[in-house]
Amino acid sequence: MSMKSLAETHRRALRGLSLDQYGYVTPTNAEALGVPAIELRKIAQRGGLVHVAYGLYRFADIPITEFDTFMEAVLRCGPDAHLTRDAVLALHGLALVNPRRIRVGSPHRVRRTLPDSIEVIREQVAPDDLTSYEGIASTTVRRALLDCRDIVMIDRLVEATEEAGRRGLVPRHQLTALLDEITTGRS
């Protein structure tokens, strides 16, 4: 296979993966596909990718959606990162939250320089409280509702819990106990 066709194969593989990540790719993604990390830089130099941040690239021709900023925030913080607290509620349009900063949880210290729009919360989250929404690593809506008791008005959390139940984001059999935890503050 010629160098040009190998480069094109790498680009196609990265682009295919990026479609599941709102256009974003990382060196870790490239490695998982068998694409040398140097290829990301080469593709970016040729104009096929935009360098967004250290270790983060995006195919500029992939349309932007309302989920891009959430995906970018998680990817900027590393492979074990996830949306947390009011960022999860904002992702789902719950509790009328519009945080100035996207809260991203990570079990590790994040040493990267991040924009002011991202706040990292170092946290250990039980595996049962982690999931993926719209392809973005996240705490469950149930966990996010509980974690927002100190930052969102209780009335809004109650409404958000009921709405989450209607939309299937929280199992119906958990609603009564969850509402009790939110209103009493007991976990």
Rank of each mutant, 00 (worst) to 15 (best):
R111F: 12
D61K: 06
V88T: 07
S106L: 02
A95M: 01
L96D: 14
I64G: 14
A44H: 02
P115A: 11
T140R: 05
R149C: 02
I154G: 02
V158E: 01
Q124D: 11
S138T: 12
D128K: 15
G165K: 07
G168M: 12
V120S: 11
V104A: 04
R101H: 13
D68E: 15
L49A: 11
V88P: 00
P107D: 03
D155G: 06
H108F: 12
A44S: 04
G135Q: 05
A160N: 04
T84W: 00
I154M: 07
I64Y: 09
A81P: 05
Y54H: 14
D61R: 08
S106R: 02
Q45W: 10
R76K: 14
Y57V: 07
A87C: 05
R109D: 09
M71F: 10
R101T: 14
I118T: 14
N98K: 13
L157D: 03
G135P: 01
S132W: 08
L96C: 04
R156A: 12
D61I: 04
T139C: 14
T161C: 10
L130T: 06
R149W: 01
T131D: 06
R156L: 13
R109Y: 06
S132L: 15
T65E: 09
V88C: 03
R101Y: 13
Y133N: 06
I136F: 05
I62S: 11
V141M: 01
C77W: 12
P79H: 12
D116A: 11
L157N: 02
C148G: 05
T69F: 11
E123V: 08
T69A: 15
E134W: 13
A81Q: 02
D155I: 03
E134V: 12
L145K: 01
V120L: 08
V52P: 00
S117H: 08
R101V: 13
T140K: 02
V141D: 00
P115N: 09
R149F: 01
T131F: 09
R142F: 14
R143K: 15
V170T: 09
E134T: 11
E66S: 13
L56A: 10
D150C: 01
T131W: 08
A95I: 00
S106I: 07
A90I: 06
L157W: 03
P63G: 10
R58N: 07
M153F: 07
A137N: 15
A73P: 11
P127C: 05
L94K: 02
D80I: 06
L94D: 01
H92P: 07
R143T: 07
A95Q: 00
L146V: 08
F67H: 14
D86G: 06
L145H: 06
G168T: 10
G47V: 04
E119V: 15
L96Q: 13
R112G: 08
V158K: 00
H82A: 13
Y54S: 14
R143P: 02
A95P: 00
L130H: 06
I154N: 06
G47W: 13
R149I: 09
A90Y: 04
G93M: 03
E66F: 12
R111S: 10
G105K: 10
L146I: 12
A144Y: 01
Y54C: 15
V97S: 01
I64D: 12
A81G: 03
L83M: 12
